[in-house]
Design a protein around this nucleic acid. Structure first.
Ligand code: NAD
Ligand code: NAD
Lengths: 204, 204
DNA sequence: ATTTTTATGATATTTTTTTCACATATTATC
DNA sequence: GATAATATGTGAAAAAAATATCATAAAAAT
């Protein structure tokens, strides 16, 4: 298994190469990618080597081939079903951001909330009562969840998800969580991102 | 200037220590922090050493003292004004998430949008027309912006912000941007976060 | 056909990050 | 007050990550 940093770069390569392709480019050199992402060309080539992406000497790399390989590495052959727990401001934004996720093989299949005003089982992406969460996960073999409940409900929600044997959680609450044996937890903390940005600007 | 990783850890220490403090704890050992965050105790101590956070031998560290020092390092003595460009789903969620940012010395002072239905200069946090963006930044000495416009408007928005000499940008669009001489750009890509999570679950 | 050019891919080197190990100081105990 | 216990702080060691170097292959030019 590769490092998180390497996978990050892989995702960045992908995004950049999609852009290049849409501009009509067919081939690309490690140098071009390096410049675009602000890293060294040898790191690009090393990454490609690790992932089994080969180019031709003098001719560079075929964009189409790289992209295929990246999708394969990321396991994008199968669609991943995801649920959202806490359909408030952030949760709704994500729920409605269909096209962006769909085209990456990520399908948000349902939301869960305690607020009766938010619950709507008939919507295109249904929003159910949280009381149904555990059973829904079991019945539909859900492996991934996004957590965007208020802080106060975070711990409880996490426990339920773990009990239901969810494999991966994207956590938007500030409750910082460690991976467990079974569940990988990825924390997004927007306040941290801002604070870090401010730090680097101030210490530039 | 410290590495991004070290600043990340600093922010994690902060979050964890706030939690500990709210539980009534006064002191903490590097071991406790290490366990909570899943890192080694020596790394915690090394970080503290780098940041000039000192404990007492046998007695550990005073939580209050660490937190003070962290706030000092992060420059939390002054409130930072931030604007949001693109007050759609994500932008609105951030705009309304006042308390979370305010208590960290991050103050969202205005939003900007092209949609007349969204513009509301009289709101608690006013939302202005994008045509006023450049002048607003100049007049109010704004240093930071969050960008949550659609992809199609991303490049243009970035150019305007750079032209207005913004120092830091938190970018939610998938357009991947490099830092420039003057402007530090931090990219949040939720799709990437999900893809990475899926990768690590599949290759666990 | 030969030479030149140049980008890859592999290896070596350097840099950065993390961990180890232990002397030292400080608190608690006897 | 002496002794024991133990967590810090630091310098050395190890590990990991990134970069530099260069032989080689393949395309282009002559
Ligand atoms: N909005 C932001 O910009 C922002 C920024 C940073 C972090 N966050 C964090 O993200 C999380 C969500 O933020 P938000 O602004 O969307 O909050 P919100 O209050 O708008 O939404 C929370 C939703 O969760 C629902 N909920 C409450 N308890 C629940 C439970 N037990 N099970 C299921 N649903 C439950 C509520 O009914 C509500 O719909 C919070 O933890 C917040 O701290 C938000
Ligand atoms: N919503 C999500 O969950 C999500 C997830 C990942 C990435 N993103 C990205 O975040 C960005 C915003 O997403 P969203 O869902 O909030 O979109 P949205 O369409 O809800 O909001 C975009 C807002 O920007 C405004 N706008 C358009 N052109 C503008 C301009 N030139 N200047 C100022 N404002 C302008 C629109 O009027 C609208 O209010 C997009 O780039 C999207 O790809 C969103």
């Amino acid at each position: 298994m590769e490092s998180a940093e390497r996978i990050n770069r892989l995702l960045n390569y992908k995004t950049f190469l999609y852009q290049l392709r849409s501009l009509g480019f067919i081939k690309v050199f490690s140098d071009n990618i390096a410049d675009a992402l602000g890293i060294s060309a040898s790191l690009v080539r090393k990454d490609f080597g690790v992932f089994g992406i080969v180019g031709s000497q003098k001719g560079g790399y075929e964009i189409e081939k790289i992209l295929e390989k990246i999708q394969e590495i990321l396991g994008k052959d199968t669609v991943q079903k995801i649920i959202i727990v806490g359909v408030g401001r952030i949760g709704t934004a994500l729920l409605e951001y269909k096209k962006g996720f769909d085209k990456e093989g990520i399908k948000i299949v349902a939301g869960f909330d305690i607020d009766p005003a938010t619950i709507d089982p008939e919507a295109e992406i249904p929003v159910y009562s949280t009381s149904l969460l555990y059973d829904y996960i079991q019945d539909n073999h859900i492996q991934f969840a996004i957590v965007s409940v208020p802080e106060s409900a975070a711990q409880q929600t996490l426990e339920t998800l773990k009990a239901a044997h969810i494999y991966g959680i994207l956590n938007f609450t500030t409750l910082r969580l460690k991976n467990t044996e079974e569940t990988i937890i990825s924390n997004i903390n927007i306040e941290h991102e801002l604070s870090r940005l401010i730090y680097f600007v101030k210490n530039r």
